[in-house]
């Protein structure tokens, strides 16, 4: 918590002074409120579903399983597995050199698709996007650190009260990547280290239940080997790709501080 104090103090100085709202020059009124939804020391298991946003040619659907431990209110560590394809399943391999190519004979890749723009570029305009622009993450496993310095609350139409944590996250892991060739076959482009960063918020429905909306960018190197054509040598096309995932999740929280019972006969 202390680590956030300095930047926040600078922000405070930039912000218009709250003193403008005080009632009397000789007193200040403060609210020191016990959080209704404390996460300190809690474990969190989340199941997410979502899709990529913003990519021109690729459109992925994915699910993510997360396991978080909240070291304190502001810091959590997270392990996650995100998948758009059944892990380790590829279908029938087609013989040949270079990157492994598979026949698209089973629906393993349930979350890996291409956009309408891709079809339009291919069929209407008869153009070809770079193969590296078509590479997708099929499975990702990694860890992340979550920093949530912001706690918020709100009322909807001045009725009902909601609470949320707003967080930033950064991490890394490994991912398998692939793309679909024009002939419909899938090419395994390899396993790479992937960096991720993003943010989101956690809306508390109960002390044990939260909804999360998470926007996370995964950065990876898409490396596509183009086999030799005729007498010439093959080429390697490499691009740094970003996949931005918008995920919605349901999370269960357990452990941590027992709820504050202000009064109980027990």
């Amino acid at each position: 918590m202390k680590t956030t104090r300095i930047p926040v103090a600078i922000l405070c100085a930039l912000w218009l002074p709250a003193a403008a709202y005080a009632q009397s020059v000789n007193e200040r009124v403060h609210v020191l409120q016990k959080r209704d939804y404390s996460v300190k020391g809690k474990f969190e298991i989340g199941l997410f579903g979502g899709l990529t946003v913003g990519d021109v040619f690729t459109q992925q659907f994915a699910h993510t399983l997360t396991f978080d431990y909240h070291v304190n209110e502001a810091l959590a560590i997270e392990a996650l597995w995100m998948s758009s394809k059944l892990p380790f399943a590829n279908g029938t391999r087609i013989a040949g050199s270079g990157q492994a190519e598979y026949k698209d004979d089973k629906n393993f890749r349930w979350g890996e698709t291409y956009t309408g723009a891709y079809d339009q570029v291919k069929s209407d305009a008869q153009l070809s996007p770079s193969n590296a622009d078509l590479v997708m993450l099929s499975n990702y496993i990694g860890v992340a650190v979550q920093f949530s310095p912001i706690y918020g609350k709100w009322s909807l139409f001045n009725w009902g009260l909601g609470h949320a944590d707003i967080y930033l996250t950064a991490g890394g892991g490994v991912a398998t990547t692939d793309y679909r060739k024009a002939n419909g076959n899938w090419v395994d482009t390899g396993t790479y280290f992937v960096g991720s960063f993003g943010g989101g918020f956690r809306i508390f429905l109960a002390r044990w239940l939260a909804l999360r909306l998470d926007l996370r960018d995964y950065t990876f190197a898409a490396r596509v080997e183009v086999p030799a054509q005729g007498g010439g040598g093959g080429t390697v096309e490499t691009k740094i790709r970003n996949s931005l995932y918008l995920m919605f999740g349901v999370c269960l929280l357990f452990g941590g501080e027992a709820p504050v019972e202000i009064w109980s006969p027990y």
Binding site: V31, N72, E257
Partner: peptide, 21 residues
């Protein structure tokens, strides 16, 4: 850290009642 601090500026939030100082 399980407490939140809010400055009071004349706005009464129902959930903050009882936590003033």
């Amino acid at each position: 850290e399980t407490y939140n601090y809010w400055p009071f500026r004349g706005e009464y939030w129902e959930d903050e009642l009882g936590y003033y100082e």
